[in-house]
Design a protein around this nucleic acid. Structure first.
Lengths: 210, 210
DNA sequence: CGTTCATTTGAATCTTCTCAAACCGCGTGG
DNA sequence: CCACGCGGTTTGAGAAGATTCAAATGAACG
């Protein structure tokens, strides 16, 4: 799905990692959000004709597509569904506020904060396989990670090398690995409240879309 | 309204400037959004019990408060209203994505981009008085602006001084002034598409809340 | 094996921050 | 009327963090 296009369906990610991105005037790719199992890829299609962001898979995965008219129908006729949609939208807002905040942190904290977010989101996400894991695999090259964090790939690399020497990270090509999530979480200040982990992710909802 | 509190009402800004902010662990204030006439201040109260951000006025103004139960009632019983709420939420998402992106720009562009956003939003906002003005008054100290842009007040100042010497800005104490918005818009790459200016801001909506 | 993509390293440079001090405008109380 | 304090702006100098450009190394895949 390219930037500025209009999409015919609403997409829900059921397995795998994906991201939403924009390309700046300077030709640089800016990743605006990452999607994990259970997340919607292009909720805004419900409201706007033209989508601001492109969407791309980071891994192989499974996607559920709901034709837009059908999705709008669901929203209009089923109040539970409408609530679930808007709950997802507000969660996105909450997460994006943190992404803005994160941009103010130094590179090391920025990277660790992102890893923490990912691990918490997987813990509460739709893919039961991924919940409560001791370790975390982030299926991104350092270059993609740089676009997520708003850093250069070079600087991300220096930071990764550093964190590896501290034992917080491991990495092979195309993957950043957190061997022990507990160690990660102790190494940076992270308050998962903004992910609203406790509040039911509209339970009826998960059973439908995940 | 403080951070982490729960709010009893939904607040709509009818006149004046306000902002949503969070305080970081380091005690620094991070402004997550600014609200202009016609904007909702705490839409997320519709979904979450505890609000992540504090809300504060930047100027005197006028606020419309709708008790939460009543707002939820409106959403549930009036499909038009529900659509309007969610349209506002998606607009917020779109704007916040740009705020993240903006953090990747150098200070000068960051500042100008923000000014452009403000001028466009005022042009399409609820306060008719403010529409189509040749000049723009941003009622913020450089220190607040720094918190918006994620810069230090010192660096904002240097940037302001520079832009003033170029004739793009003027400023007296407590106010940044753009004498000529056209000059501003020519001085930085800015695409207002993300503000979805064309799409009706749920017209029925504006008449109710503005 | 050669090609391509990703990671790593170095050196120079740039942007922004920090700390510190001076300055200015404005209102308050002496 | 003046002295003072306060919040906001301005300036300087040094340091930290991140970028750029360039090149070397490594891993995977046909």
């Amino acid at each position: 799905m390219g930037e500025g296009e209009s999409s015919a369906s609403l997409y829900f990610l059921q397995a795998g990692w994906a991201c939403r991105f924009a390309t700046t005037r300077g030709g640089k790719r800016q990743i605006a959000a990452i999607m994990l199992p259970g997340d919607a890829c292009n909720l805004d299609a419900l409201a706007f004709d033209r989508i601001g962001n492109g969407v791309q898979m980071l891994t192989s995965g499974r996607i559920l597509a709901i034709p837009l008219p059908e999705a709008r129908e669901m929203r209009a006729c089923n109040p539970q569904m409408a609530l679930a949609f808007s709950w997802l939208a507000f969660l996105e807002i909450s997460i994006m506020a943190q992404w803005t905040m994160r941009r103010g942190l130094p590179a090391r904290d920025r990277l660790l904060h992102f890893m923490c977010e990912a691990s918490h989101r997987l813990d509460h996400g739709a893919d039961a396989e991924l919940r409560g894991n001791r370790s975390l695999e982030v299926p991104m090259t350092q270059e993609w990670l740089a676009d997520v964090l708003g850093l250069t790939n070079v600087h991300v690399n220096r930071t990764v090398v550093q964190l590896r020497s501290e034992g917080v990270l491991a990495s092979n090509t195309r993957r950043i690995v957190v061997p022990d999530v507990d160690v990660l979480r102790r190494s940076v200040a992270f308050d998962p409240a903004y992910l609203h982990p406790k509040e039911a992710r509209a339970t009826s909802f998960r059973s439908v879309f995940s």
